[in-house]
């Protein structure tokens, strides 16, 4: 995340990831401020799971997140465009073949 003007007294910012039900990935839910990890976890519970939105929480201090640069998006993601052989539909199989 971009280095923000840090107010020395402000509690650090945390990113919250919530697993909405067993078996699913944790998904970014939002952010919040907390003095420490324990409090961040509890604040996440109080702020982001009031309506039974979650069964598991991850919190990470925002400053530890490294994000890709959108200016490099073309070089990062476009090369995947022509690799259609990575997708199962690329392969033609006779209809008789089942369960594949």
């Amino acid at each position: 995340m971009e280095e923000q003007k840090i107010n020395k007294n402000e509690w650090p910012l945390w990113e919250v990831f919530i697993r909405s039900k067993a078996g699913l990935d944790h998904k970014h839910a939002g952010s919040l401020h907390a003095a420490d990890a324990q409090m961040a976890m509890e604040n996440a519970r109080d702020v982001y799971t009031r309506r039974m939105e979650g069964v598991s929480i991850w919190v990470v201090e925002s400053k530890y997140i490294h994000a890709s640069d959108p200016a490099e998006a073309e070089s990062l993601y476009d090369p995947a465009n022509d690799k259609i052989y990575r997708h199962p539909t690329f392969y033609n199989l006779p209809d008789e073949v089942k369960y594949m």
């Binding site: 995340m1 003007k5 107010n7 402000e10 952010s31 919040l32 401020h33 009031r50």
Partner: peptide, 24 residues
């Protein structure tokens, strides 16, 4: 009323992504 606190929080967080702190 608690939801309103939550809404304030979500929105401050959105503003913070633009490089301004909640304290400011």
């Amino acid at each position: 009323v608690q939801d309103e606190a939550g809404h304030g929080l979500y929105l401050y967080s959105a503003a913070e992504t633009l490089g301004v702190s909640r304290d400011e």
